[in-house]
């Protein structure tokens, strides 16, 4: 079955154009004109990827992301009319996996959707059956499980991929560019803020004190590394 994309966009014309473009790429499309409609549609039929416009009447795009995250780890790509750092970062903090700015290039959007689908299908690094332990942090890539002090942590697919990538190179520093390439599969159109926002979100889930991380540490000027 072809992947279903839930398109949440209040402008009917943009929705129609997006439907055409995405169907052209081989996806099936479900449309929603508001956040409330989107939640309803998602409950009826969970989509493979959700495309969320941040500027929605009623429930905002940010709130929709948070609502979806309560129940699902579905990849969310936010669509923003601005490329302001503030909007993008706020969207990513709300739980989105990636973003595109309006007006978008269909090919770029398609590439980001493909990347999201790849991450969703293949959570762990390919041939890893290893299992990692960093103090009280336990990662089981083959089972798709992360435990903190024995408790199961709720990670999205992207967060999980990011953590596995860092775990597979434990003690090594990975730059934002390397992480973008390995986790998102992007070369130059990636944005370091994607990595930063995901690292912040990951910390709130695996670190006892996210402000002073024990495991996922920043190496200033270079990138991030995972340690025991």
């Amino acid at each position: 079955m072809s992947p279903t994309i839930l398109v949440v966009e209040d402008d009917a014309r943009i929705r129609a154009a997006l439907r055409m473009a995405l169907e052209e790429e081989g996806h099936s499309v479900v449309e929603a004109a508001s956040g409330e409609d989107a939640l309803e549609a998602f409950r009826r039929e969970p989509a493979t990827v959700v495309l969320v416009d941040l500027m929605l009447p009623g429930m905002s795009g940010y709130d929709l992301c948070r609502e979806l995250r309560h129940t699902s780890d579905v990849p969310i790509i936010i669509v923003t009319a601005r490329s302001d750092t503030h909007d993008v970062v706020a969207g990513l903090e709300a739980g989105a996996d990636d973003y595109v700015t309006k007006p978008f290039v269909v090919k770029e959007l398609a590439a980001r959707i493909r990347s999201a689908l790849r991450r969703a299908r293949r959570p762990g690094p390919d041939s890893t059956t290893e299992h990692f332990e960093f103090g009280n942090l336990e990662i089981r890539p083959e089972a798709g499980e992360v435990r903190v002090a024995g408790e199961l942590a709720q990670l999205t697919k992207t967060e999980f991929r990011l953590l596995c990538e860092l775990a597979a190179h434990a003690g090594m520093v990975l730059s934002r560019e390397q992480l973008l390439e390995r986790v998102w599969g992007y070369d130059y159109f990636g944005d370091g803020r994607l990595v930063d926002a995901h690292v912040r979100r990951l910390r709130t889930k695996i670190e006892p004190n996210p402000a002073e991380p024990d495991h996922l540490v920043t190496v200033r000027g270079l990138g991030y590394k995972l340690q025991g």
């Binding site: 943009i14 473009a21 007006p103």
Partner: peptide
Amino acid sequence: SHELRSPLTTLATAVQVLQA
């Protein structure tokens, strides 16, 4: 500029379908 972005998005997306 923001107001122009919505119609532009429709135009750009639709024209890319045509282009295909």
